[in-house]
């Protein structure tokens, strides 16, 4: 087996555009789950409306890509209002179930033949980010160190993705280290206490849902700009669980948690993927047990197992403090 190849694949995965997209989604979720204590299990819905906001604006209505980004952000705000307005007054369980249901509703509607004129149905929409790629300042060619290389195209997407991640991280840092952030964290601890001190908890939760949702929608945009293809089935509920896994891995409620989580998560996932495929190709694992097609399923199973073990044995993640988990009475 070629461990150098496996390792370079893993590093490429850890710093590639996909990891950046997931990091953005996780930064949004961190505002919801990590700081406000909102159980949003439909982060993928925000990614979807962001992605399709861009794709539909450009492919169907012929608008400019940048206007499409604005449309995507507006869609995320509307979605947050629609989801939050009825559920944020209720127990946290309701938001969890309403958000995951909303994610599925949107995916099903977007992929239906009914919506095909607008969304392209199961086929999705393609090639809507040309405007972005035309701005690519990197001359054609491969860039990188040793066997870790990216095309000029990938590099440009990475600049966008990680640039947005950096911006969002600074933004969240400023928010959280302010009186606004203090109110948000107090809601996570005990919303009735916050209420008894005159804070309008409902409005703060709604603001948190909107902010995190908008950041999540940027994650969706980076995802589809990277592939130049928006397909409803890439916005499966499992995406949300991946985002949760990497957020918990990095440390929920820590500024750098989503960033570190995304890098480590994709490193580990791609590493095991590559390892497994090589092992199958080299005949170490009989293809009767796990053939190449099942390798994808193994990835999901391992992520599931990882999430389970993480929550059982180290729920505070890499960056979290153990003592804070003990204080977490929920």
């Amino acid at each position: 087996m070629d461990f150098a190849a496996i390792l370079s694949a893993a590093v490429t995965g850890a710093i590639g555009p996909v990891a950046a997209a997931y990091a953005l989604a996780a930064i949004g979720l961190n505002i919801h789950f990590g700081y406000t204590g909102l159980l949003n299990f439909g982060q993928v819905a925000f990614m979807l409306v962001g992605a399709y906001g861009v794709a539909i604006s450009v492919s169907v209505f012929g608008l400019s890509l940048w206007l499409g980004v604005l449309v995507g952000v507006l869609c995320a705000i509307v979605l947050a209002l629609l989801l939050g307005a009825p559920t944020l007054r209720l127990r946290s369980d309701y938001l969890a179930i309403a958000t995951i249901a909303a994610g599925e509703i949107l995916r099903l509607f977007y992929r239906s033949s009914y919506a095909e004129p607008l969304t392209g149905g199961v086929f999705g929409l393609q090639r809507f980010a040309n405007e972005f790629y035309e701005l690519n300042p990197f001359p054609a060619g491969e860039y990188g160190i040793g066997s870790i290389t990216f095309s000029n195209r990938d590099l440009w997407v990475m600049v966008l993705g990680w640039g947005l991640v950096a911006l969002a991280t600074v933004f969240v840092y400023l928010l959280i280290h302010s009186p606004w952030g203090r109110v948000i964290r107090s809601i996570r601890e005990d919303e009735n206490a916050a209420r008894s001190l005159g804070k309008n908890v409902y409005v703060y939760k709604l603001q948190s849902l909107i902010l995190g949702g908008v950041i999540g929608s940027f994650g969706g945009m980076v995802m589809v700009i990277n592939t130049q293809s928006a397909n409803p089935d890439s916005f499966d509920p499992v995406v949300t669980f991946f985002v949760y896994t990497l957020l918990v891995l990095g440390g929920a409620g820590r500024i750098a948690g989503p960033l570190l989580g995304a890098v480590v998560f994709w490193f580990v996932v791609v590493f095991f993927d590559a390892l497994l495929r090589q092992a199958i190709a080299a005949g170490y694992i009989s293809s009767d047990i796990i053939g190449a097609p099942q390798a994808g399923a193994v990835r999901f199973a391992l992520v599931g197992l990882g999430l389970l073990l993480l929550m059982v044995f180290r729920p505070q993640g890499i960056l979290g403090r153990k003592e804070e988990m003990v204080l977490n009475g929920r």
Partner: peptide, 14 residues
């Protein structure tokens, strides 16, 4: 209802 993961000072500032 002490806000457990806020410091004592933050509890008051809030």
């Amino acid at each position: 209802k002490a806000l457990a993961r806020l410091t004592v000072l933050e509890n008051l500032q809030l």
